Simulated scan of single mutants.
Amino acid sequence: MSQSLNLEKYKTIVLDCDGVVLNSNQTKVDAYYNTSKRTGGTDEQAQAFVDYHIKLGSIPRNDKIRYYISDILKQPYSEELFQTLMDTFTEILDETLMQCEVAPELEHLKQRTAHAKWMMMSGGDQAELRKIFPRRGLDHLFELGIYGGPTKKNEHLAKMIADGTIQFPALFIGDSRFDHQASTGAGLDFVFVSDWTDMPDWQSYCKQHQVTVSHHLELQPYTDF
């Protein structure tokens, strides 16, 4: 076990949603599978959709659904089919996101970092998140706002650094390869939280890239993986 992170220095803290704030990674997996099945997909097509979702990690669902149409269903793109899939996914997810476990250390971390401002940055749909979080009574934690797809995280980060919304030093807390790449590429520090991740082989990735890992939002780095 290494020493605690120096949270005192950060002016901005950015948190991913799925697998970080909410225990919703499996919920998303199920939603991709059931979206395929509910719209006529085979078991194989539904599993391929799930596999692609897991491979891409925190990429907005719009891109995954376009891939599903072109490369899994092997159909010409149509706006009608795209919207049907989007609507089906949203309907399935809306109910389940209201039931997901919230990270136990979330409120404690907020107290520990009272000097910093928080924002959420998710691969999930932005409009959906901005409906769910007030209903769950969690939106007040994120003074700088809640952001998501279809805009990608690296694009959000670039814009908010440029307009001064993100003040440095800044920390990103995530659970995917893309979270790490997008945040460090933009100059933020990064912590990977492991307990709810669905990233395959995250241990070797974090070792290779010397990523700080915590079980969850207690943010006590550990190396026993």
Rank of each mutant, 00 (worst) to 15 (best):
M1T: 01
S4K: 09
N6C: 09
E8G: 04
T12L: 03
L15D: 02
L15A: 13
G19T: 01
L22W: 00
V29Q: 08
V29L: 15
A31K: 06
Y33R: 15
R38G: 08
G41T: 05
Q45F: 08
A46R: 09
Q47Y: 13
A48S: 14
I59A: 06
R61G: 03
D63I: 15
R66I: 13
R66H: 15
I69D: 08
I69Q: 10
S70Y: 04
D71V: 09
I72T: 09
Y77T: 14
S78M: 07
E79L: 10
E80R: 10
E80A: 10
E80L: 09
L81M: 14
T96L: 01
M98S: 10
M98L: 15
Q99S: 10
C100L: 04
E107L: 08
Q111K: 10
T113G: 00
H115I: 02
W118R: 02
G123M: 05
G124I: 12
D125A: 06
R135A: 08
R135Q: 14
D139Q: 10
H140L: 05
E143H: 03
E143T: 04
L144I: 09
I146M: 11
G149E: 14
L157E: 00
A158Q: 12
K159L: 15
D163R: 01
F172H: 06
F172N: 02
G174H: 02
D175W: 05
D175I: 14
S176C: 13
S176K: 03
R177Q: 15
F178H: 12
S183F: 02
V193I: 09
D195L: 01
T197C: 03
C206S: 12
K207R: 13
V211M: 07
H216G: 07
H216I: 00
Y222L: 06
F225T: 03
